[in-house]
Simulated assay, not measured.
Amino acid sequence: MKYRAVFVAAPLLVTAYGALRIVDGLDGSRGPGPAWTAGHLAFLAALVLFVPIFWEMRRMLGRSAPATAAVAVGLAGIGCAFAQFSIDVVVGFMAADHDAMTPLFEQVKSVPGVSVAVYTAGPILFYLALAALVAALAVRRQVAAWVPVAVLLSVLLPLASLDLMPLGGLLMFAAFLPLARQGSSTGRHASVHA
C-alpha cells in the first residue's frame, strides 16, 4: 500500500524531533547546533508527510465536504507550522549561540501577524484537523474508538510539557498503525459508496 510508509514515518519523525529536543537541552539551553537543526528538519519532514496522510484520510471518509474542509484547515495549519520550523532552522544557522537567537526571533515576531499566524493560532489548525479527521473515522467505525483518543493524547501531552513529545509521537505511531493497514483500500470502498 502506497500510504503505509507515510502513516509510519510521520509519527516516528515527530518522536525523533521530541527526542532530539531533549538532547539539545542537556547543556541547559536549546539551539543552535546539530541537535536543534536535526530535530527541526525531522519535524519539517513529518509535516510534509502529513499532507498525503490528510488526503488519504479524506479518501477514507468518502471525500465528503466535512472531510475536505478539515483537510483544508489542516493544510493551512501545516503551512503555518512549516513556516515556524523553517524560521527556527534559519535562526539556528544565523545565530552564533543561544543568546544570539533571541533578538532574531523577536525581529521575526515583530512583523505584524507573524506571531499569531506562525507561532500561536496557525499551527493549532493542523492539530485540530488531525483530531477531527481521526474522530470522523472512528464515528464511521473505520478505526477503533481508542485511535482518536490516542491521537488526542499525542496532541495534548506536549501542551503539558514539550519534553513529553517523544511519548506523544509514539502514541500517534500506535494510533496510525490501523490507518496504515487500512489506507487506500478503505478509501476506494468509501468513495464508491459516497
Rank of each mutant, 00 (worst) to 15 (best):
A175W: 01
R58C: 10
G31F: 03
A135W: 11
V8D: 03
L156N: 07
A144P: 00
E56A: 15
P166W: 03
M101E: 07
S184T: 13
L47R: 10
F54Q: 12
P166R: 01
G79Q: 11
C80I: 02
A144E: 13
R63W: 05
S110I: 06
V147N: 02
M1C: 14
V91M: 08
I22H: 14
F85K: 11
V91Q: 06
L47G: 13
L130Q: 07
G122P: 00
Q107N: 03
D24V: 13
A42N: 11
A190N: 04
Q182P: 11
P103F: 03
A129N: 11
V134S: 00
L125G: 12
L61M: 12
A145E: 06
V111T: 10
A180H: 05
L157P: 00
M60G: 09
G113A: 13
P52E: 02
M172V: 07
A136L: 14
L61P: 07
G79D: 12
F126I: 13
L125Q: 08
S191F: 03
V151Q: 08
L157E: 07
A5C: 00
L13H: 07
L26C: 11
L171R: 11
M94G: 10
Y3D: 06
M57L: 12
V23E: 15
R141V: 10
L162E: 09
A160C: 02
D163R: 13
P123A: 06
G79L: 15
G168H: 13
V143Y: 12
G183C: 07
F176L: 02
D24S: 14
T186D: 12
Y3E: 10
R21C: 05
